[in-house]
Amino acid sequence: MLASSWKAAGFTYNKYLQIAARAIRKSLKEEARLKAEKRGPLELKYVKWENGKQGEPQNLPK
């Protein structure tokens, strides 16, 4: 079943939900879709501070 295929690919449950939700958003009618797709992309960056100095900003892996 489905569960095995996404688990086998090493996806987390969150990643799986994110893909499923994206497919649903893309299937909406134009007006609702434009509103919904704004909440799709999500990015997180983090920066490590050492000895009072800012390090390189890193993307949090998805």
Partner: peptide, 18 residues
């Protein structure tokens, strides 16, 4: 890639149900 195929399979399942 394996990840792309797995992603597409999830989408197929969702869309078929929809």
């Amino acid at each position: 890639s394996e990840a792309d195929i797995a992603e597409a399979k999830i989408e197929v399942e969702v869309l078929e149900s929809l």
